[in-house]
Simulated assay, not measured.
Amino acid sequence: MNDSLLDNSSLREKISNLFVGGIVTQIVYVAAKLGIPDLLASAPMTAEEIAAKTGAHPPTLVGILRALVALEVLGEMPDRRFALKPIGEFLRSNPGWRTQAILLGEEYFRAAGDLLHTALTGEPAFDHIFGMGFYEYFTRNEAAASRFNEVMTMTAPLRYSDVTAAFDFSRAKKLVDIGGGHGAMTSIVLRANSGLRAVLFDSPPVVEGARRRIEVEGLGARCEFVGGDFFKSVPAGGDAYLLSSVMVNWDDERALAILRNCRAAMTVGADLVIAEYAMLEGRNYATSTYVAAVAALAIQGSHARSQADYDTLLAKAGFRIEKITPLLYEPYVLLHARPV
């Protein structure tokens, strides 16, 4: 090894940070799982006080708390009490990022730990670790499914903040949201377009969760809830069909099946709107975006498609892309397509 590399403190720090990334994830997960940010929201506490309330091992907890201080999640006061810092506020139960930290630290972390399997086979490590696919796992694990749906709902306003500016939904009378989950995207579009009605389509158990959420928001009268399987068919009669964070979760064969079912349900004048994770050529993305794309491949078998990929996929399904608009939350884009 070049001795000058060992003498370069900046490079040593960078490689050290790369090495400990997985441990950082687990430290943040432990803090969230034990509810430490929630405990500290009202007042600072000593390590002993936190340990007493969480059941943690006091001497070990001190080391974890000081690591959280180094990560700027917590601060340590002169009297040895620990206090919440602004980053730590994200890990509270409200606004809800605690749920995401737990999801990342449990199922996602286990799958990402077997990334080598994905690299060697091209198959999701999640399937290899858990013995079933991502969505099948959530149908069998209610607590994990609840966390996943909460995270998707919570982050939707961030991911899709400018979707209604990127496409004019007011020209449609009936929107069909395919794979709409618990209805976060449906709600965003309905609130922005008072004359619009919607059909939220997803698997029957998911649809029931969506019904409860959308009714609480006061939008239930403008939304129909339909359970089914988008690999078999989707509801007909919409003026606009919406797919948000759906295509990325499936390989080309299954993504094509969904698109062809949409095409079969659509009239020639209907619009297809896809709000999706895409890596456009010629754009530089944040480091976290590239890392997240690899993680998504290992966990969900997700594919961060390019514009050329979407051109090919949509053409095979009987669509032509009218416009692609990059959204504020990278690397999401809005694709507007029409049947041909």
Score class of each variant (00 low, 15 high):
Ala51Pro: 07
Ala275Arg: 00
Arg212Ser: 12
Glu76Cys: 12
Ile324His: 00
Gly179Ala: 06
Pro58Asp: 08
Asp127Met: 09
Val199Glu: 06
Ala236Leu: 10
Thr25Gly: 08
Glu217Gln: 15
Leu335Pro: 02
Thr118Pro: 00
Asp311Ser: 10
Phe109Val: 02
Ser233Cys: 13
Asp114Phe: 15
Thr25Arg: 09
Gly282Trp: 09
Asp202Gln: 05
Lys53Ala: 14
Ala192Arg: 10
Arg147Asn: 04
Pro235Val: 03
Glu330Ala: 13
Leu34Glu: 07
Leu6Trp: 14
Leu313Ser: 08
Asn284Phe: 10
Ala304Met: 12
Ala192Asn: 10
Ser187Ala: 15
Val189Lys: 05
Gly131Phe: 06
Tyr241Ile: 04
His182Asp: 14
Pro78Cys: 10
Glu48Phe: 14
Gln300Asn: 11
Asp309Gly: 11
Phe319Cys: 13
Gly75Lys: 11
Ala304Tyr: 09
Arg320Lys: 15
Ile87Lys: 13
Asp229Met: 09
Asp7Gln: 15
Ala270Val: 01
Val176Asn: 02
Val62Arg: 15
Met266Thr: 09
Gly301Arg: 00
Leu116Asn: 11
Gly55Asn: 13
Ala317Ile: 02
Gln300Gly: 15
Cys223Tyr: 13
Glu217Met: 13
Ala166Pro: 05
Met1Lys: 12
Val69Trp: 05
Asp162Ile: 01
Ile64Gly: 07
Thr54Trp: 03
Leu120Arg: 12
Val73Asn: 01
Leu313Phe: 08
Val62Trp: 08
Ser288Pro: 04
Val73Asp: 00
Cys262Glu: 00
Glu217Trp: 15
Ala51Thr: 08
Pro157Cys: 03
Val273Glu: 00
Val69Phe: 11
Gly131Thr: 01
Pro157Ser: 09
Gly237Phe: 07
Met152Cys: 12
Thr121Leu: 03
Lys232Arg: 10
Ile321Ser: 01
Leu242Phe: 08
Gly22Lys: 13
Val207Lys: 06
Leu313Lys: 06
Cys262Ala: 12
Glu89Ser: 09
Ser146Trp: 14
Val69Pro: 01
Val206Met: 06
Ala210Thr: 09
Ile324Ala: 04
Arg260Ile: 11
Arg211Val: 10
Ile178Tyr: 05
Met45Glu: 12
